[in-house]
Write a protein that binds this DNA or RNA. Sequence first.
DNA 1: CGGTATCCGATAGGATACTG
DNA 2: CAGTATCCTATCGGATACCG
Lengths: 127, 127
Amino acid sequence: MKKTTEEEHSQCTSILRPVRDSLDVLNGKWKLPIIVSLTFGEKRFTDITKDVHGITDRMLSKELRDLEMNGLVVRKIQDTYPVKVTYSLTPHSKTLRTVIDALRNWGLLHRKKLNQDCKERKVVSKK
Amino acid sequence: MKKTTEEEHSQCTSILRPVRDSLDVLNGKWKLPIIVSLTFGEKRFTDITKDVHGITDRMLSKELRDLEMNGLVVRKIQDTYPVKVTYSLTPHSKTLRTVIDALRNWGLLHRKKLNQDCKERKVVSKK
DNA sequence: CGGTATCCGATAGGATACTG
DNA sequence: CAGTATCCTATCGGATACCG
């Protein structure tokens, strides 16, 4: 138990780099929720608004642009009248499935944990 | 293919709620990296600084407090001289392993994808 | 070593109004 | 319907200095 620290550090770095790569692309409150919404198939602007509760037009617009630039979302304009715009996932963003599942499962676990702590009156008041 | 939309919407919501629960706790640039650092065992303030490249004392201090309040990190003060403070994960935060693994794998995939696109000269300039 | 205090700029994100 | 424009606040996050 001497030189583990150095080895550990480089091991840690090798995990941290890709994790931070992911976080850079997925950061913020809305990107993953938007992607979740689109996992159910291509949708129109307003439909996403309805799924992702609380998002404003402004944020949705901005986040969709971000996601499109990063190759995670495709914007398609149907040249009908009136014009119809749809958004959908790319093959690449579909690989986010495991991330979403992991977050979902942990979210459920976390909420269960909170309820438990509540029963045990061990809640630490937030702020 | 008529009423799927309503059903889809409630299905979507049932995924979105726990995902957003997770994101609320894990948001920001630093929390998951800090947790990754601590997966290698309890560490001191400065050691975390070294693992999580680029973080400032101020942010680390703040984020550790946040994580402690949410029951994801434990702060332990050894009453030696000089005083030694260590941080470690809780059983609960250890369940984040799957989330971290998923993000790590996706990060690797994403970088591979970027390199591919680069070769194909399909890069979309950022900004 | 393990932080806190202060200051500051940048970005996230909300509210509201408006447009083709 | 599918957004943009404008304005605003809050938080993020960096720099620097300082403290027991």
